[in-house]
Each structure stands twice: as C-alpha cells, then as structure tokens.
C-alpha cells in the first residue's frame, strides 16, 4: 500500500473539514479514525484553525509527516456534511486510495452554492429579521435589510479586490453604518441601534466567540486563543468604523 498517498488523502480530507467550519476536535478525530481504519492506529494528528499536521509510521518503520496550512475560510454546512459522510464511508469500506480519490471528485461535483441573488436575499432576510428581533419596527426592518444587502455587496466587491479580512469588515461596517445613518435621517427608519446591529449580525463574531469557548472547554487551548483573538479583532474593526462614521454623522448610539 502507498502510505504516502494515503496520508495525502487523509490530510486533504482534514483540510476540507476544517475549511467547511468543523470544530478542531471533530477534524482531528475524523482523521485519526480514518488512519486507524487503514491499519495505522498510532497516527498522530494535530490541528489548529489554520494548520493541520499528520504523522504516521508505516509498517516498515518509515515515518511520514504532512503539514498543511489551512487558508482563511468561512462556514459551509453542505461541504461539512458531505465530507463527514464520506469520511465515515471510507472508515467503513477502506477502499484503495485511488477509489477514495474518485469518491472525493464525485463529492466535489455534488457540491452546490447559492447563486448571488439568493445569497443577497439571505443577507437581506437575516438583517431585516434581526432588526425586528432587536426591537425595530417594520420600517427599521426594511432599512436593516437594505444595510445588510449593502454589506453583502461590499464584501463581495472587497473579496474580488483581494482585501484582507480585517479591512473587508472595516469597510463593510462603515458603508452599512453610513447607510443606516442616512436612512434614519431621511425618516425611513426610527431606531438607529436596531438597524445597525441587525445589519451587523452577519459581520459580528458572536459565533466565533462561542466557538472559541467551546474549543477551550474541549481542551484545545491554542485554537481557543486563536479564535478569541480573531473575534476581538473583528469586533474592533466593526466598532472602529462605526464609531468614526457615527461621530462624523453627529449621532450617538
């Protein structure tokens, strides 16, 4: 058996799991099970949010290690479910590596993404509903939805310009806050607070913060600190640009 190819395959799977937003312990555990199913129960796997290390010793006594850097990523539930299913299936059937590769290719062909208009609708709906949720009225919801839509467009444009995550968040929050201020001044909305925070829900790192706490409790301290720092940095970006825009507009929250 080609252990080098097997390790490559496993690390690719682990990378895909991390990229789709799986927790650290899930990715590590899946990889360990996969390698154990292929007759390598002593494999070492270590993951943090942006790096994956896996090391095995072949039956001939030769050690092999792979290190893979995981790029910045969002959350993709469909990808997570597909790869999780595939990982379980591979553990059960342990097909040859070439067939496992073919299954990954088939899986990638099955993945779907929402089209841009549907995605924009998602941003609109989420922001509008959260504006209502935070005490806005129907007008506020409409304004919140429009601001959420603006965030979606700015994020897409900034991603095309290959801006970093911090700067992307900064600009998206600034545009959204300015728009919210303009809409309130124009009389379309009443509660600036409900509109801005509703629209910001797609930017605020609430999930990242909660996940970081879960990493801490699962014992993955490095991952917890890394996610906590990221959450604080993102929140700072939002607060910075909002603070500046609102101060320029002469409003207070």
């Amino acid at each position: 058996m080609d252990y080098s190819a097997l390790l490559d395959l496993s690390v690719d799977m682990g990378c895909s799991l991390l990229e789709s937003g799986a927790e650290i312990y899930r990715a590590e555990d899946s990889l360990r099970r996969l390698l154990a199913a292929y007759g390598l129960p002593d494999a070492e796997v270590f993951a943090i949010p942006n790096c994956l290390i896996a090391s095995i010793t072949t039956p001939e006594g030769e050690p092999i290690t792979r290190v893979r850097r995981v790029p910045a990523h969002g959350t993709d539930i469909q990808k997570l479910e597909l790869y999780n299913d595939l990982c379980r299936a591979l553990c059960r059937d342990t097909p040859p590596v070439s067939e496992a590769r073919a299954r990954i290719a088939a899986l990638e062909a099955r993945r779907r993404h929402f089209s841009a208009p549907v995605l924009c609708f998602g941003y609109f709906l989420g922001a509008a509903a959260f504006s209502l949720f935070f005490g806005g009225d129907a007008g506020d919801a409409l304004c919140g939805g429009v601001c959420g839509l603006a965030i979606a467009l700015v994020l897409a444009a900034m991603a095309r310009l290959e801006a970093g995550a911090f700067f992307r968040t900064l600009v998206a929050a600034a545009v959204s806050a300015a728009l919210a201020l303009a809409l309130v001044n124009a009389g379309a909305g009443r509660s600036l607070d409900a509109i801005t925070i509703g629209a910001f829900m797609s930017l605020t790192p609430g999930v990242a913060l909660t996940n970081s706490m879960r990493e801490f409790m699962a014992g993955d301290m490095v991952s917890g600190v890394s996610r906590l720092t990221e959450a604080l940095l993102t929140a700072t970006a939002i607060a910075l640009s909002t603070g500046i825009v609102l101060a320029l507009g002469g409003a207070t929250l």
Binding site: E81, I197, T204, G206, A235, L240, T242
Partner: peptide, 23 residues
C-alpha cells in the same frame, strides 16, 4: 454532524451585539 444545526440555531443567542458594543 450536529454542528450543522447547532451553529445556526444558536445564532439569535450568540453575543454578537455584546462583543460589538464592548469594542
């Protein structure tokens, strides 16, 4: 995986507003 449901269902509760106001 339970993550698929947990992540989004927790969304109304996660302190996005709190961390934003904090900063």
């Amino acid at each position: 995986p339970v993550t698929s449901y947990l992540l989004i269902a927790l969304f109304p509760l996660v302190p996005g507003r709190g961390i934003y106001l904090t900063m």
